[in-house]
């Protein structure tokens, strides 16, 4: 079982943040959800630097990662995570509007653990996020602490 690690939500669109947070709240996860709004903040959080220098250094149980973001995009974040000795095993789920083949290929090449296209219909969107939350925060066995 999971040790109730954090869920890191990386999403620049505040409307998507609100809908995603709502879905995660509705599945009553006890895991803390940390929200950052662009790729560079995500990297600061993961590498415990900048505004996140003093955070509890445990890696999140899963990162829900948007692709199209200003400054540092999702693929770049994914790449840096996979290149880091300390972070490379963190489960990463791409949560995006893009079904573009190049995005899918790049993501899988970079070692993503799941790729989910945000459903347009509200009920389906909520259901998808809830399933992701429950699976990665509760059912999935995380990598052992380094």
């Amino acid at each position: 079982m999971n040790r109730l690690g954090k869920i890191l939500l990386v999403e620049d669109d505040h409307r998507d943040v609100e809908l995603t947070m709502l879905a995660l709240r509705e599945c009553r996860l006890v895991n803390e959800v940390v929200e950052v709004n662009d790729g560079s903040d995500a990297l600061d959080f993961l590498f415990c630097r900048g505004a996140f220098e003093d955070r509890d250094p445990e890696n999140p149980a899963v990162v829900l990662l948007d692709l199209k973001m200003p400054k540092v995009g999702g693929l770049q974040v994914l790449k840096e995570i996979r290149e880091s000795q300390d972070l490379k095993r963190i489960p990463i789920v791409i949560l995006t509007s893009s079904r573009q083949e190049t995005d899918l290929i790049r993501s899988y090449d970079l070692g993503v653990n799941a790729y989910v296209v945000k459903p347009v219909e509200f009920g389906e969107f909520m259901e998808a996020v809830k399933q992701l939350g429950i699976f990665w925060a509760i059912i999935n066995e995380p990598p052992p602490r380094g």
């Binding site: 409307r15 809908l19 945000k118 509200f122 969107f125």
Partner: peptide
Amino acid sequence: RAPLRHINGF
């Protein structure tokens, strides 16, 4: 798709 998802959601 993104604005549509937001309209639908809210």
